Amino acid sequence: MSNVKLGATLFCYGTEYARFEYDFEECVKKAALAGAQGYEIVATQMIPSYPNVSDEFLGKVHALKEKYGIGPVSYAANNDKGMRNDRNLTDDEMLADAIIDLKSANKLGCKVMRVQYMMSPEAFERLAPYAELFDVHCGIEIHNPETPNSPNMQRYLEVIKRTGSKYLGFVPDFGFLSVQPNKPQWMKALKAGVKEEHLQLAAKLRRDGVSQEECIQQVMAAGASPAIMPAIAGMFGFVQFHDEKDLPELLQELRDILPYSFECHGKFHYLDEACHEASIPYNEIIPVLIEEGFDRYLICEYEDELYCGGTEFTKRQMIMEKKLLGIK
């Protein structure tokens, strides 16, 4: 049996939360019922006093831990360099914001903080002593369309190796291992009147490595509905996918950075009733975690492109992960 710990980001229930169907407590409760041993909190989404953590909110977190048996293990920071309308934030300003996030993560008892790559490698390097001071491990999120070997991520790896800090590392998001088109976007395109053959053509062109512009030209020349555009944008953007023949190389990239990874994000977009994720090959990914002895948190993370809520899909994701990990 694997030593991987299972968690869930409360972002899984973001749709229900935004619709006022769930409050913070209900999100924690649903994560516990799904089988999470701990949860990630997206700070800007669910901390009323963000960027600080009030004593009142901290008390609620402790009370819910007593009630449901799980508490926050990961703090998802939003490193937003576009907060001003006249210029991007400087490295000094990004660092200052991240230090406040570290303080809040520490107060909540989180040992991991997700950092986004809008924070430059230079600022990330300067974060190390503060991470050590607050005893919070800072992981740059490797999110589609980035992969561990992409030039941008390699710059962070250089920082991690050069500093030797045990508090700087990665949080790989398994979306970068997608090998099929995003099913929710595909479903929405079909509902909007796009023909299956035109979606298949777009997917083939994406696999063939053509540019997004050329893909659009060829698909539109074939008579596709303009409603296909969001699906094409996804294929070339944050939910892009790789050819299955490239999967072994991508899995090796994952192996290479696991020793520097403080947690993993188990991204999912759509699971059928058999608990099979439509585009991310978990039957290939989970064995890598087991073989490499990964013993930290695998955080379920649902992206609700269908706006249907994450409750049922999060349950299915947990069932699938437990089966693959050999957890009863």
Rank of each mutant, 00 (worst) to 15 (best):
G293P: 01
Q217R: 15
E40N: 04
N149L: 03
T90N: 10
A123M: 10
Q37G: 13
Y68L: 08
K195L: 11
V73D: 00
G69F: 01
R155D: 12
A224I: 03
G14F: 03
N144K: 05
Y130K: 07
A63I: 00
H242D: 12
E249T: 13
I142E: 13
M94I: 02
Y75A: 03
K183F: 10
H265A: 13
A18P: 00
I232H: 08
C308W: 01
C12D: 13
K166S: 15
V61F: 03
L190C: 07
P148S: 13
S261F: 06
R207E: 15
M119V: 10
Y156N: 07
P281D: 09
E196W: 03
N78P: 00
Y75V: 01
E291S: 13
K166N: 15
E26A: 15
A227W: 04
D101N: 12
T163C: 03
I280V: 14
G69D: 03
V136T: 01
E25Y: 06
N182H: 14
G293M: 04
K107L: 09
K328Y: 00
V42Q: 12
E291L: 01
F174D: 03
L89K: 04
P226A: 06
K161A: 06
V171E: 12
K322S: 02
Y50K: 02
R207T: 14
I100Y: 02
C215L: 09
K204T: 13
Y260L: 11
L102A: 05
T9P: 04
E197L: 04
P121L: 05
F170A: 12
E40V: 02
G309K: 11
A278D: 11
K166E: 15
Y297H: 04
Y22F: 15
S2C: 06
A98K: 02
P72I: 11
V288Y: 09
L108H: 01
L298I: 02
Q217M: 08
V219N: 08
M46E: 11
A221G: 12
I41E: 06
L58V: 09
F20K: 15
Q217V: 12
A34V: 08
K60W: 01
E26S: 14
F262V: 05
A32Y: 02
A32D: 10
E146K: 11
A96L: 03
Q317S: 13
E26I: 02
G326K: 03
S104M: 00
C308Q: 14
F174I: 11
F176L: 06
Y270V: 06
Q252W: 01
K323Y: 08
A189I: 06
E263Q: 12
Q180G: 00
C308L: 14
K191T: 11
E132N: 06
C138S: 12
G169L: 07
Y282T: 08
E196Q: 13
G169I: 07
